[in-house]
Amino acid sequence: MSDIISKNPTVFFALCSIWIIMILASLCVFSIAKFKKNADHSNLIQRTKSWWMMVFVFSAAVLISKTVSLLFFGFLSFLALKEFFSQIPSRRIDRRVMFWAYLAIPFQFYWIYLDWYGMFIIFIPVYMFLFLSMRMVFTEETDGLLKSLASIQWVLMISVFSLSHAAYLMRLPALASFKAGGAGLMLFLVVITQANDVMQYVWGKTFGKRKILPVVSPKKTWAGFVGGVLSSVVLACLLSPYLTPFNLKQSILAGLLLSIFGFIGDVTISAVKRDLGIKDMGNSIPGHGGIMDRIDSLTYSAPLFFHFCRYLFY
């Protein structure tokens, strides 16, 4: 733990500021619940409690060691994949293919541990893609094969391959002029993506009128989207001198990228939930739903931000 604090003080201070913001936000929620007694605030309070739990686990994962952070992201991928596999329509025989899809997780995160980029980037899209298809053929059950195969592959890509990019960010080294290194970039990604979700919600609740995608996500409005993007760009400019090697122009671009595609990730998962006829992917985070309901935006923002950084600096 002292390791991270001494080697990477900016990351430690960034985590401290998250805690300060959480305390301030909790005080706001507390006073709203105390003084505006006419409305039901139980969901807001439950959400805040869950935020505390998530911030606590996340801080511990980042502070203890890089290996623990890696295990944390691996476990998150496992929970996300499990939520999907439990919800998608499947045939009895599909469980055998799903089993192998689960096994992709330890391998994928082991490549990250080894810092073997070449393998990390092709393992799921090439080797798992071909292997799962082969395994599916060997079941000799051709009725509904394509539909099952396509769902399993898509779910593996979105919940393991995409998310693993957030973990790989931590493997990117510090540069001469940029001391925070990969841990700083990962923190930047997670903080902006999550803050963007919250700010979209707040802007939408306050000013929202015109719906942006009424069929997929009836609660999302243009005001929420635009307000979220603008706030994220401002936040990105404020944070990037500490956590990233970006100049002002790059910070603005990063803010736009994370907020716009965070939104796309969110509505993509919403569209799939609508197809499955469910409201939430699970029930593991009280007030939020399942793990996938909380990290839906990251499924888009993590890989795009990773390649943005890699293209510009590594």
Binding site: K82, F85, S86, R92, R95, R96, M98, G282
Partner: peptide, 18 residues
């Protein structure tokens, strides 16, 4: 509901499902 999918009768392979 669901355990018959995670570990049905006659199978030894446990597949994680909620």
């Amino acid at each position: 509901r669901g355990l018959g999918k995670a570990l049905p009768k006659g199978e030894a392979l446990l597949v994680p499902l909620i």
